[in-house]
Design a binder for these strands. Sequence first.
DNA 1: ACAAAGTATCTCACCGCTAAGCAACTTTCA
DNA 2: TGAAAGTTGCTTAGCGGTGAGATACTTTGT
Lengths: 165, 165
Amino acid sequence: MADHVDLVLEQWRERRPDLDATPMGVIGRMSRLGALFDAELRRNFAKHDLDRASFDVLATLRRSNAEHSLTPAGLMHSSMVTSGAISQRLDRLEARGLVTRAPSETDRRGVLVTLTDAGLQLIDKVLPTHVDTEQQLLAGLSAAEQEQLAGLLRSLLESLGDKRD
Amino acid sequence: MADHVDLVLEQWRERRPDLDATPMGVIGRMSRLGALFDAELRRNFAKHDLDRASFDVLATLRRSNAEHSLTPAGLMHSSMVTSGAISQRLDRLEARGLVTRAPSETDRRGVLVTLTDAGLQLIDKVLPTHVDTEQQLLAGLSAAEQEQLAGLLRSLLESLGDKRD
DNA sequence: ACAAAGTATCTCACCGCTAAGCAACTTTCA
DNA sequence: TGAAAGTTGCTTAGCGGTGAGATACTTTGT
């Protein structure tokens, strides 16, 4: 039982025995899994003429409230990208007619982004295939192990200040 | 005890109760942790005039063998990026005098990338600060929990075909 | 021996993100 | 109330990655 990271850790023990590389056992593996997950999810998005960035915005709007609307700032916090990235994502989605931008009624600086009918239809079509893909990616772990893993990851996120909002 | 992903899962239950979003409890958290880790590690790299891509190449060469050398293909497999990305990374590192490219002695298509003295000195200076940063990122979990987490991640990587080589 | 298939590396057009900076607006507080 | 500080969303230059394609070389199979 050994993955690529086990090899990396062995190599560090050989070349730099003074270095305690154990944290790489977690962080290195998360990085590799992230890359593998991303590649697989991207494949599914591509089938529906989408990319990760667009899916992310559409899905966030879909789940946010009954009107499927949110401010760019709200999208930014949820997505963990910069405000510039959100502006560009919205430009693309607006050009495709999947979202609309309207001036906020309460704050003249603000903008309200809303899913169009076409956007709603698209995300509702893609969502089931997305969770399906995710489930397949996790199929190597039992349900109990998946739960255990989720718990550890939550602890870690909380310790790093990840909040509900 | 709740992180941002708990909120996301609640929202899905509210808006799409038909959808079983549990896999997001793992994949969503890994994605968020990846972003947080990346930001913090990047901060450390920047202190030493480095970025993730350059560190990745230098560290891979450092641990690979006593000569600190590897082919571009080897670097590519270890880094999980495309060959084009490796070529460009090597261009940058070569321009800074941190690695050299020499023709392979056994295969005239091949190239052997080797750490220069400057490259070796730089990576050896940065490495301890890097594992230190990683350790701090994981400090929210006990040693036993970190081990447990590493084990689950390894199982997952193995199930997805991640091999030692 | 030779053609076909495979491999190693590089080039380049394009794409999305960051970081810095800006303009417009709102909040705070003396 | 007015000035300072903060917030919101956008623009843009630059960067690093992808994906497609090219070149040069090696391996395979007859």
